[in-house]
Design a protein around this nucleic acid. Sequence first.
DNA 1: ACATTAAGTGATT
DNA 2: AATCACTTAATGT
Length: 209
Amino acid sequence: MEDLIENYGYLFEDELLKEIHEIGIYKSVKEGDVLIEIGDYIKSMPLLLNGAIKILREDKEGEELALYFIERGDTCTMTLSCCVGNSKSEIRAVAETDVHLIMIPVQKMSEWMRKYSSWQEFILQSYHSRMMEMLEAIDTIAFLKMDERLLKYLRDKAMVSHNDQLQVKHKDIAQDLHTSRVVVSRLLKKLERDNKIKLFRNRIKVIAL
DNA sequence: ACATTAAGTGATT
DNA sequence: AATCACTTAATGT
Protein backbone atom coordinates (compact mmCIF):
# COMPACT_ATOMS: atom_id res chain seq x y z
CA MET A 1 0.00 0.00 0.00
CA GLU A 2 2.78 2.45 0.87
CA ASP A 3 4.37 1.50 -2.42
CA LEU A 4 1.16 2.28 -4.21
CA ILE A 5 0.75 5.70 -2.62
CA GLU A 6 4.35 6.57 -3.21
CA ASN A 7 4.07 5.89 -6.91
CA TYR A 8 0.49 6.80 -7.72
CA GLY A 9 -0.68 8.88 -4.80
CA TYR A 10 -0.21 12.13 -6.67
CA LEU A 11 -2.28 10.79 -9.57
CA PHE A 12 -5.33 9.15 -8.07
CA GLU A 13 -7.90 10.20 -5.51
CA ASP A 14 -7.99 8.35 -2.19
CA GLU A 15 -11.12 6.39 -3.07
CA LEU A 16 -9.49 4.98 -6.16
CA LEU A 17 -6.25 4.19 -4.34
CA LYS A 18 -8.28 2.25 -1.80
CA GLU A 19 -10.01 0.26 -4.52
CA ILE A 20 -6.76 -0.47 -6.26
CA HIS A 21 -5.34 -1.65 -2.99
CA GLU A 22 -8.32 -3.94 -2.34
CA ILE A 23 -8.70 -5.39 -5.79
CA GLY A 24 -5.23 -5.30 -7.25
CA ILE A 25 -2.89 -8.21 -6.82
CA TYR A 26 0.62 -7.30 -5.83
CA LYS A 27 3.18 -9.15 -7.91
CA SER A 28 6.92 -9.50 -8.00
CA VAL A 29 8.66 -10.45 -11.21
CA LYS A 30 12.28 -11.42 -11.75
CA GLU A 31 14.52 -9.97 -14.40
CA GLY A 32 14.13 -11.85 -17.65
CA ASP A 33 10.67 -13.22 -16.88
CA VAL A 34 8.15 -12.99 -19.69
CA LEU A 35 5.05 -11.09 -18.60
CA ILE A 36 3.12 -11.18 -21.81
CA GLU A 37 3.68 -13.55 -24.70
CA ILE A 38 2.59 -12.87 -28.25
CA GLY A 39 -0.86 -14.31 -28.76
CA ASP A 40 -1.82 -14.17 -25.10
CA TYR A 41 -5.26 -13.00 -24.12
CA ILE A 42 -4.88 -10.44 -21.42
CA LYS A 43 -7.14 -10.58 -18.40
CA SER A 44 -5.45 -8.08 -16.15
CA MET A 45 -3.55 -4.88 -16.58
CA PRO A 46 -0.30 -4.12 -14.81
CA LEU A 47 0.56 -0.94 -12.94
CA LEU A 48 4.31 -0.66 -12.59
CA LEU A 49 5.58 0.27 -9.15
CA ASN A 50 9.27 0.00 -9.94
CA GLY A 51 11.61 -1.67 -12.37
CA ALA A 52 11.31 -1.65 -16.14
CA ILE A 53 9.77 -3.80 -18.84
CA LYS A 54 11.00 -4.25 -22.39
CA ILE A 55 8.46 -4.39 -25.18
CA LEU A 56 9.39 -6.58 -28.15
CA ARG A 57 7.93 -7.29 -31.54
CA GLU A 58 8.58 -10.54 -33.33
CA ASP A 59 8.35 -11.54 -36.99
CA LYS A 60 7.17 -14.90 -38.30
CA GLU A 61 10.68 -16.34 -38.27
CA GLY A 62 10.93 -15.60 -34.57
CA GLU A 63 13.29 -12.66 -35.12
CA GLU A 64 12.95 -10.07 -32.40
CA LEU A 65 13.03 -6.32 -32.34
CA ALA A 66 12.98 -4.20 -29.20
CA LEU A 67 10.48 -1.36 -29.39
CA TYR A 68 10.69 0.52 -26.11
CA PHE A 69 10.80 0.28 -22.35
CA ILE A 70 8.06 1.07 -19.89
CA GLU A 71 8.76 2.25 -16.38
CA ARG A 72 7.20 2.99 -13.04
CA GLY A 73 4.00 4.97 -13.36
CA ASP A 74 3.42 3.44 -16.76
CA THR A 75 0.95 0.81 -17.74
CA CYS A 76 0.93 -1.56 -20.67
CA THR A 77 -1.01 -0.03 -23.51
CA MET A 78 -1.31 -3.35 -25.24
CA THR A 79 -3.56 -4.34 -22.39
CA LEU A 80 -5.83 -1.43 -23.15
CA SER A 81 -6.20 -2.21 -26.82
CA CYS A 82 -6.76 -5.83 -25.99
CA CYS A 83 -9.62 -4.93 -23.67
CA VAL A 84 -11.30 -2.92 -26.36
CA GLY A 85 -11.16 -5.54 -29.07
CA ASN A 86 -10.85 -8.60 -26.88
CA SER A 87 -7.97 -9.51 -29.17
CA LYS A 88 -4.62 -11.17 -28.63
CA SER A 89 -1.39 -9.48 -27.68
CA GLU A 90 0.76 -8.36 -30.59
CA ILE A 91 3.84 -7.91 -28.47
CA ARG A 92 5.99 -9.65 -25.93
CA ALA A 93 6.78 -8.03 -22.60
CA VAL A 94 9.92 -9.10 -20.77
CA ALA A 95 11.08 -7.83 -17.39
CA GLU A 96 14.19 -5.77 -18.01
CA THR A 97 14.94 -5.58 -14.32
CA ASP A 98 13.26 -7.05 -11.29
CA VAL A 99 9.80 -5.56 -11.27
CA HIS A 100 7.10 -4.88 -8.70
CA LEU A 101 3.65 -4.32 -10.06
CA ILE A 102 -0.03 -4.47 -9.28
CA MET A 103 -2.36 -6.47 -11.47
CA ILE A 104 -5.81 -5.04 -12.03
CA PRO A 105 -8.56 -7.21 -13.54
CA VAL A 106 -9.58 -5.71 -16.87
CA GLN A 107 -13.26 -5.59 -15.89
CA LYS A 108 -12.39 -2.79 -13.51
CA MET A 109 -10.99 -0.79 -16.38
CA SER A 110 -14.25 0.51 -17.77
CA GLU A 111 -15.94 0.73 -14.40
CA TRP A 112 -13.22 3.04 -13.11
CA MET A 113 -13.24 5.00 -16.33
CA ARG A 114 -16.73 6.16 -15.48
CA LYS A 115 -16.25 6.44 -11.76
CA TYR A 116 -12.93 8.23 -11.47
CA SER A 117 -11.83 11.11 -13.62
CA SER A 118 -8.24 10.67 -12.45
CA TRP A 119 -8.32 7.13 -13.81
CA GLN A 120 -9.68 8.25 -17.14
CA GLU A 121 -7.02 10.92 -17.27
CA PHE A 122 -4.34 8.37 -16.47
CA ILE A 123 -5.48 5.95 -19.17
CA LEU A 124 -5.69 8.64 -21.83
CA GLN A 125 -2.37 10.11 -20.82
CA SER A 126 -0.70 6.75 -20.88
CA TYR A 127 -2.21 5.95 -24.27
CA HIS A 128 -0.76 9.19 -25.51
CA SER A 129 2.74 8.62 -24.18
CA ARG A 130 2.78 5.07 -25.50
CA MET A 131 1.76 6.38 -28.91
CA MET A 132 4.62 8.85 -28.75
CA GLU A 133 7.09 6.15 -27.83
CA MET A 134 5.86 4.09 -30.73
CA LEU A 135 6.49 6.97 -33.11
CA GLU A 136 9.92 7.45 -31.64
CA ALA A 137 10.63 3.77 -32.14
CA ILE A 138 9.59 4.05 -35.78
CA ASP A 139 11.78 7.11 -36.29
CA THR A 140 14.69 5.33 -34.71
CA ILE A 141 14.40 2.32 -36.93
CA ALA A 142 13.67 4.26 -40.10
CA PHE A 143 15.94 7.28 -39.84
CA LEU A 144 18.85 6.47 -37.57
CA LYS A 145 21.93 4.59 -38.67
CA MET A 146 22.87 1.50 -36.76
CA ASP A 147 25.52 3.24 -34.67
CA GLU A 148 23.05 5.89 -33.51
CA ARG A 149 20.43 3.26 -32.80
CA LEU A 150 22.93 1.34 -30.76
CA LEU A 151 23.89 4.32 -28.65
CA LYS A 152 20.26 5.23 -28.08
CA TYR A 153 19.55 1.67 -27.07
CA LEU A 154 22.37 1.69 -24.55
CA ARG A 155 21.30 5.01 -23.12
CA ASP A 156 17.67 3.92 -22.78
CA LYS A 157 18.79 0.74 -21.13
CA ALA A 158 21.02 2.60 -18.69
CA MET A 159 18.20 5.03 -18.04
CA VAL A 160 15.54 2.50 -17.10
CA SER A 161 17.86 0.43 -14.95
CA HIS A 162 19.27 3.52 -13.23
CA ASN A 163 22.69 2.09 -13.81
CA ASP A 164 25.40 3.03 -16.28
CA GLN A 165 26.93 -0.41 -15.95
CA LEU A 166 24.98 -2.71 -18.23
CA GLN A 167 25.16 -6.48 -17.89
CA VAL A 168 24.78 -7.49 -21.51
CA LYS A 169 26.36 -9.60 -24.17
CA HIS A 170 26.88 -8.29 -27.66
CA LYS A 171 24.70 -10.99 -29.10
CA ASP A 172 21.76 -9.99 -26.88
CA ILE A 173 22.01 -6.43 -28.13
CA ALA A 174 22.18 -7.72 -31.69
CA GLN A 175 18.95 -9.61 -31.09
CA ASP A 176 17.13 -6.59 -29.67
CA LEU A 177 18.25 -4.37 -32.53
CA HIS A 178 17.69 -7.11 -35.06
CA THR A 179 21.20 -7.11 -36.48
CA SER A 180 24.20 -9.40 -36.24
CA ARG A 181 26.61 -9.76 -33.37
CA VAL A 182 29.60 -8.85 -35.53
CA VAL A 183 28.08 -5.53 -36.43
CA VAL A 184 27.31 -4.76 -32.81
CA SER A 185 30.83 -5.63 -31.70
CA ARG A 186 32.30 -3.37 -34.34
CA LEU A 187 30.08 -0.42 -33.56
CA LEU A 188 30.61 -0.86 -29.83
CA LYS A 189 34.33 -0.76 -30.44
CA LYS A 190 33.88 2.48 -32.32
CA LEU A 191 31.76 3.97 -29.53
CA GLU A 192 34.49 3.03 -27.11
CA ARG A 193 37.10 4.78 -29.23
CA ASP A 194 34.88 7.86 -29.21
CA ASN A 195 34.75 7.64 -25.43
CA LYS A 196 31.00 7.15 -25.37
CA ILE A 197 31.24 3.81 -23.59
CA LYS A 198 33.70 1.45 -21.97
CA LEU A 199 33.73 -2.22 -22.83
CA PHE A 200 34.22 -5.22 -20.59
CA ARG A 201 33.32 -8.84 -20.93
CA ASN A 202 29.59 -9.23 -20.33
CA ARG A 203 29.42 -5.60 -19.30
CA ILE A 204 29.28 -2.16 -20.83
CA LYS A 205 29.69 1.14 -19.05
CA VAL A 206 27.81 3.99 -20.66
CA ILE A 207 29.75 7.23 -20.34
CA ALA A 208 27.90 9.66 -22.56
CA LEU A 209 24.50 9.76 -20.95
C1' DA B 1 44.38 -29.00 -19.27
C1' DC B 2 40.57 -28.79 -22.24
C1' DA B 3 36.06 -27.21 -23.89
C1' DT B 4 32.93 -23.57 -24.26
C1' DT B 5 31.41 -19.03 -24.80
C1' DA B 6 32.26 -14.02 -25.64
C1' DA B 7 34.46 -10.67 -28.23
C1' DG B 8 37.66 -8.71 -31.94
C1' DT B 9 39.01 -8.34 -36.87
C1' DG B 10 40.08 -8.70 -42.03
C1' DA B 11 38.09 -9.61 -46.27
C1' DT B 12 34.14 -9.87 -49.28
C1' DT B 13 29.63 -8.64 -50.95
C1' DA C 1 25.33 -3.38 -42.83
C1' DA C 2 25.61 -8.47 -43.40
C1' DT C 3 28.23 -12.65 -43.65
C1' DC C 4 32.16 -15.73 -43.44
C1' DA C 5 36.05 -17.29 -41.49
C1' DC C 6 39.27 -17.06 -38.24
C1' DT C 7 41.72 -15.32 -33.84
C1' DT C 8 42.05 -14.09 -29.15
C1' DA C 9 40.44 -13.72 -24.50
C1' DA C 10 37.84 -15.11 -20.51
C1' DT C 11 35.45 -18.66 -17.99
C1' DG C 12 33.68 -23.11 -16.62
C1' DT C 13 34.58 -28.19 -15.56
